[in-house]
Design a protein around this nucleic acid. Structure first.
Length: 622
RNA sequence: GCCAAUGUAGCUCAGCCUGGUUAGAGCAACUGAUUUGUAAUCAGUAGGUCGUGGGUUCGGAUCCCGUCAUUGGCUCCA
């Protein structure tokens, strides 16, 4: 017996004429309409008997319980098999199945009739499944869901999941000892077996609001965030840090349009290759789309260069504000997954594969350094690397070298054949404390787009060639970095440590609290002295108790608090309440400044992005 | 996109199941008192078309349907 089972919003069918002599008699062949049901197209095959029918109906009932549906239509459908049972047998087994589901609202469409039908299948993953049930197979084969056309291409990718240790040995996931690599285990299961174990909102969503960083913007589309002054300050510092690092590496910063003509020849072939999820805009007959990465702009730009092999590798860089992807609504979460995001994207045009491989090693270290500088440490992320089997066989030692640089075992996905435009891709995945994995840094070796975009250079033999292109995002989306930092803070807090930002990202680094109004002038002087040294300092001049003002500074994660009273006014030293210890220290001004400078060394600075006086500051309640 | 849960004052939440005076509390805001020594000073005032549209009802925050958003799961993540 073969069954195609569909969870439907509705079905409408009309018996048109008897197809065989032994067709069922029906009173009036009217159009029937049923709603919110499971339709099971059934082909009863030669050799099927009562046990097959019982088995089939119990499997159908099972899966209907899973999807919570109570209405079933059995729809005789000969075209599922070329080895059909005799109609008399078929009709009796069909009725037996119907009887076997009496606790459901069950019916069958007339047997032996030609019918026209219209049906609306729901789109969820369990909506479609096919079953083959035979007499000998006590437990039948359930071939699982039938994938939609859009996914068929993806499911064709045949890949093998492995773990590669720093010494280059490959092991099967099932054989690998994860006891010292818990996060890698999470990533491996997450990616290869799609295991998820979360049942609560990610903590960063509450934090991004409470810390007045970012929030949803109901007047925009989902996944398009607003950033408050604190959030903008943090984001812009991270952006500047990444920009500086990429420039140090040798990327040249450019700016390209955020929208493109989807009918432009180079886009057409790209779109054919990927069923894209993009924002579309119709403008005066032009079909524009919002970029989902900086690739297009940079490739079209590179196309204009007259390049020689002597110029390569040549690196273009852009920090997109924004890249847009119309992710499915159910996939959006806080700052982890957005529809509009800021992405550093650095392409290196290389003359050949050896050069590309040399370059990818340099960018690998760049990415490690960038994450480290942002406060994402090694134990926060796990590496995955994916490549085609051919690439592995020809470049084994280079792959092993990357894994060695990482220094810990990595998750490997090996593709039997090339499906994407790249032959190798690695990424660092942040694992949050709910066990969710999201990619931060990544790099790819792209062997296709040089040709697609007509990018050329002249080689040693005066021949035109297309470069190999590397696509690196040293940090991943900036919003995602903020997500990672907030999730880390939430973990700290859960485990009894004080949550905090790296000092260079703190919206306020030092807070001055004058004990009474009479110390306001002295506090102002101190404010000037400190902010002249490029430190973000503010003054809580509100008429509140000292306890309350300290409590609120604590809640804003402010590292240093200076309470100013008679004692401080008359002393050369400062009394500093250090949030990390909760203790008050008395130290000279210069020592205090040095302590701050030491922690913010090599990081960009920008001034306070809020009113200097707390009394002038509106409360942001989100 | 599919399935489910949630949506009440600026914020956090109670009330909803079992429909019935004027929808409550804490925090924040505002006014006044208080001038404070390291995580919440006291008193008072104001603030809500109960996400939104429709339906049932004499009567809807409360029951039903649609819709939007958020969160979780599935899927996806070039």
């Amino acid at each position: 017996m073969r069954i195609l089972q569909l969870h439907c919003d509705s079905i409408e069918y009309t018996p048109t004429k008897k197809e065989i002599k032994s067709a069922e008699d029906i009173d009036n062949p009217q159009t029937q309409k049923l709603e919110e049901l499971v339709v099971a197209f059934v082909a009863i095959e030669d050799g099927d008997d009562s046990s097959v029918a019982q088995n089939a109906i119990s499997q159908i009932k099972n899966s209907m319980e899973k999807i919570g549906c109570k209405k079933l239509l059995l729809y005789p459908y000969a075209h599922l098999s070329s080895n059909l049972a005799k109609p008399s047998v078929a009709i009796s087994l069909l009725k037996e199945m119907e009887d076997g589901a009496s606790e459901l609202e069950v019916s069958h469409s007339p047997f032996g009739w030609t019918k026209s039908y219209k049906l609306n299948v729901k789109g969820h993953p369990l909506a479609e499944s096919s079953k083959v049930i035979t007499k000998d197979s006590s437990d039948s084969k359930d071939s699982g869901e039938i994938t939609s056309d859009a996914l068929k291409g993806e499911s064709k990718i045949r890949s093998y999941w492995k773990i590669m240790s720093p010494d280059g040995t490959l092991s099967n996931i099932a054989d690998f000892n994860f006891s010292k690599h818990k996060k890698l285990e999470i990533l491996a299961k997450y990616e290869s077996a799609k295991v998820r174990r979360v049942d609560q909102p990610p903590p960063h969503v509450a934090l991004m609001k409470k810390m007045a960083i970012a929030d949803y913007e109901p007047a925009s589309d989902s996944g398009n965030m607003r950033f408050f002054p604190n959030g903008r300050l943090i984001k812009s510092l991270i952006e500047r840090f990444v920009n500086d690092k990429v420039k140090e590496y040798g990327g040249y910063e450019v700016e390209t349009p955020i929208m493109y003509d989807s009918e432009h020849p180079s886009m057409v072939s790209y779109f054919n290759r990927f069923p894209a999820r993009q924002y579309n805009i119709d403008s005066d007959g032009k079909k524009l789309f919002l970029r989902f990465a900086a690739c297009f702009g940079q490739f079209l730009m590179a196309n204009q260069y007259q390049m020689s092999y002597k110029n390569l590798p040549y690196k273009l860089y852009e920090l997109t504000r924004y890249s847009f992807r119309r992710e499915q609504s159910g996939e959006l979460v806080g700052l982890r997954r957005l529809r509009a995001f800021t992405m550093p994207d650095c392409h290196a045009f290389c003359k050949d594969l050896p050069q590309a491989i040399d370059e990818i090693k340099i960018r690998f270290e760049l990415s490690q350094n960038v994450l480290h500088g942002l406060g994402i440490v090694e134990s926060d992320y796990e590496m995955a690397i994916r490549f085609t089997e051919d690439f592995y066989n020809e470049n084994k030692s280079s792959i092993e070298e990357l894994v060695k640089k990482h220094g810990r075992p990595v998750l490997v996905e090996m593709w039997k054949e090339k499906f994407f435009y790249f032959v190798l891709k690695w990424e660092f995945n942040f694992i949050d404390n709910l066990g969710k994995a999201s990619a931060l840094s990544t790099d790819q070796i792209d062997t296709e787009n040089g040709e697609r975009y007509g990018i050329e250079f002249v080689d040693e033999d005066n021949k035109k060639q297309h470069p190999i292109i590397l696509h690196n995002s040293p940090s991943g989306a900036i919003e995602r970095i903020i997500y990672a930092l907030l999730e880390k803070a939430a973990t700290d807090s859960k485990e009894g440590r004080k949550p905090q930002f790296p000092l260079w990202l703190a919206p306020t680094q030092v807070r001055i609290i004058p004990l009474k109004d009479e110390f306001n002038d002295f506090s102002d002087e101190l404010f000037e002295k400190i902010s002249a040294k490029d430190v973000r300092v503010d003054i809580d001049d509100r008429n509140e108790s000292i306890g309350k003002r300290i409590r609120e500074a604590e809640k804003e994660w402010i590292r240093y608090i200076l309470v100013i009273g008679e004692k401080e006014k008359n002393s050369q030293n400062l009394s500093i309440r250090d949030r990390q210890t909760g203790d008050v220290r008395e130290i000279p001004f210069d020592d205090f400044l040095n302590e701050i400078k030491e922690q913010t060394k090599g990081k960009p600075f920008t001034g306070l992005n809020l009113p200097k006086y707390l009394s002038k500051r509106p409360q942001l309640m989100v």
